[in-house]
């Protein structure tokens, strides 16, 4: 009996090939797969808006990894010890790797690397607003690892369950590698907080400056989030901005208290009823201003990326010429 059933399925598949399904039928079938937690793979049918949303989100994520190397790169030659320097180099190399995993995932959706880079340079594609803040001193390396990577991990752990296969697999890989990033940052903060009063003050100052921008990394509140609706329905995002932000706050408060630092929020208070910390209002005006390109370092970040890209043009040209010469050798 099941043999006949299998045959019937082949007939149905054949029929669909001859008689294409309507957009609506395809979309229903797509949603059924999403609801059943089936991962969507590159060559499968998907709604245009799903593809667009993914390209926007994954490219933004990739650009963030790559641009995120800049505020840290500044401190490689200024690291206080060989150990700190090795660790920072390894971390930055990871960020480059994470950018590449994500670009690859994004390219499976039918956009090229050149187009992605061009969108970054023209400002069509965004990257995380946090990287438009400058890193002023070594304590900022601690705060970036602890808070910025910490916030990124909360987001990325959730995204491991995203519905698009290549994105999900990239996230699994990134999460495996990322936990050292947060720990090395917290180690720097703990060391400075236990140092001289001046060192402790530096650590506190870094926390003061980077705390609120870290909370902004999760994006607008749910009621103002224009991209959340379909993203949750399609399971591109698995949890809302506010849920993820709350999780980050809940995790981080104890870590600050343990090393004797104070989170710069007078409204921060444990709420026995909800089992979460209540926290103060985020300065959304600042958030939107930075997104619009008016943050302290927006121009510098893009200018630097363009310069590095342009200065590497001859390498790409030479490699392409060499590849063309080798063509006959290549398969």
């Amino acid at each position: 009996m099941s043999c006949i059933f299998a045959k019937r399925i082949s007939t149905i598949v054949l029929y669909y090939k001859i008689q294409p399904m309507s957009e609506q039928e395809l979309e229903n079938q797509f949603q059924e797969r999403i609801d059943a937690e089936v991962k969507i793979e590159p060559r499968e049918w998907m709604p245009d808006a799903y593809r667009k949303h993914l390209i926007r989100q994954i490219s933004q994520h990739a650009h963030s990894e790559v641009v995120g190397m800049q505020p840290e790169g500044n401190w490689i030659s200024r690291a206080p010890s060989i150990r700190a320097k090795m660790v920072l180099l390894a971390k930055i190399q990871d960020e480059a790797g994470h950018g590449l995993y994500l670009y690859s995932a994004c390219e499976t959706l039918g956009i090229t690397r050149e187009e992605l880079i061009e969108q970054l340079h023209t400002g069509k594609a965004k990257y995380s607003s946090i990287f438009n803040y400058p890193t002023l001193n070594w304590a900022d390396m601690g705060a970036v690892g602890w808070l910025v990577d910490g916030a990124a991990i909360v987001n990325q752990v959730s995204l491991q369950r995203t519905s698009y296969g290549p994105y999900s697999r990239g996230m699994v890989r990134i999460c495996k590698e990322e936990s050292f990033h947060q720990r090395q940052g917290y180690e720097i903060m703990a060391t400075m907080a236990a140092g001289t009063p001046d060192q402790k003050a530096m650590a506190q100052d870094a926390l003061n400056r980077l705390w609120w921008p870290s909370l902004m990394m999760f994006g607008p509140t749910d009621k103002d989030s224009p991209n959340t609706g379909n993203a949750l329905k399609w399971k591109i995002k698995r949890e809302s901005n506010d849920v993820l932000r709350q999780r980050f706050v809940d995790k981080t408060v104890q870590q600050a208290e343990l090393i004797g630092l104070t989170i710069p929020d007078s409204d921060l208070k444990w709420n026995e009823e909800t089992g979460h910390y209540d926290f103060g209002e985020i300065n959304w005006e600042e958030f939107y201003n930075v997104i619009k390109g008016n943050g302290p370092a927006n121009k510098q970040r893009i200018k630097h990326h363009k310069r590095a890209h342009d200065e590497g043009a001859w390498v790409r040209k030479a490699a392409t010429a060499y590849a063309n010469k080798q063509k006959e050798v290549l398969v």
Partner: peptide, 17 residues
């Protein structure tokens, strides 16, 4: 060379039984 995701059932279901 990859199989077509649309052919998944036709390709692989026959071995289930």
């Amino acid at each position: 060379v990859a199989s077509d995701p649309q052919d998944e059932e036709a390709m692989f279901d026959p071995s289930d039984d």
